[in-house]
Amino acid sequence: MKPLVGIVLGSDSDLPLMKDAVKMLEKLNIPYEISISSAHRAPDKTAEYAKTAEGRGLKVIIAAAGLAAHLPGVIAAHTILPVIGVPVKSGALEGVDALYAIVQMPPGIPVASVAINGAKNAAILAAQIIATGSPEVVEKLHGLKAQLAGEVEAKDSRIKELGVENYLAGK
């Protein structure tokens, strides 16, 4: 099956974080591709990736970036596909600088952003975008939401049964 989501990492050091996005896309049975590129160290490669993404059948690109966080914006400058930036917690500002860099894009070059280290939510947002044209993904997302609600109900029942101290002791 052709990849629908592209995951781009600025560095292999982002892989432990972005594994959460990979796991979520696999859970939702959404094919993806993964690539390491850099807006600064490999700008031509990054631009080529973005320019050819639509033609390769991608529907959404998730780009992780820390510090100056230019990768999502550079990708967005070279494609019409939705780009979701994942600010990576790093450096003296612990990802706040990356978050600001991702959300403060100039007019005409939008980049969606999730929370700092929000790789899992980036995958869910990508799935929601894809779901606008895929009944199969719609069904998977409804299942995910039901699972999340079930987990909350189980925790609520458990705290009522055990009380606060015993609940916390069992964590």
Rank of each mutant, 00 (worst) to 15 (best):
A123G: 03
H78M: 05
P3E: 07
A112V: 09
I30L: 02
V5P: 02
G66N: 00
P82Q: 09
I130K: 08
R41P: 01
I159R: 11
M18E: 09
H40K: 01
G170F: 07
Y49R: 08
P135C: 05
T52I: 04
L144H: 02
I61W: 02
G170A: 15
L17C: 04
L125M: 15
A64T: 02
A126L: 10
E161T: 14
M24P: 06
G108P: 10
P3G: 04
A146S: 15
P31G: 14
K45P: 05
K45D: 15
D156L: 15
A122N: 09
G66P: 05
A115H: 06
P3C: 01
Q147R: 12
V88C: 04
A98V: 03
I75W: 00
P135Q: 08
L144I: 05
A123R: 06
G108W: 06
P135K: 09
A112C: 11
I124S: 12
E151H: 13
L9R: 04
P31R: 08
H70W: 07
A98H: 02
L148W: 11
V74Q: 00
E161N: 09
I124P: 01
Q104A: 12
A50Y: 08
I130F: 05
K160L: 15
I80P: 02
G6K: 03
M18D: 06
I36Y: 03
A68Y: 06
P106S: 12
K145R: 15
L15C: 06
G143Q: 14
S11T: 12
E48T: 14
V5I: 12
Q128I: 07
V83N: 00
D12G: 10
Y32P: 00
I159Y: 10
E161L: 13
I130W: 06
L141C: 00
G108N: 06
P16N: 06
I62W: 02
I61V: 13
P16S: 07
K89N: 06
S113G: 12
E139P: 05
A115M: 10
K140I: 04
L148H: 12
V152F: 11
K45E: 13
P110V: 11
E33S: 14
G55K: 12
D156E: 15
D20Y: 13
K171L: 15
A131S: 11
L71E: 01
L9S: 02
K120S: 12
Y32N: 07
D44S: 15
A69L: 09
S90F: 08
S35V: 14
M24Y: 07
K45M: 11
E94Y: 12
E139F: 09
P31L: 02
E33D: 12
T52E: 13
V111I: 07
A112H: 09
L4T: 08
K155N: 13
A39E: 00
T79G: 05
V88F: 04
V22P: 01
L9P: 00
G95Y: 00
I84Q: 11
P135D: 10
L162N: 06
S35Q: 15
G55P: 00
S37P: 02
L141M: 03
I102K: 05
Q147W: 11
A101E: 04
K23V: 13
I34W: 01
I30D: 07
V96S: 08
S37F: 00
M1D: 13
A122R: 10
A154F: 11
V60D: 11
I130R: 10
V152L: 14
K89F: 01
V86S: 07
D14P: 04
K23F: 10
P87M: 03
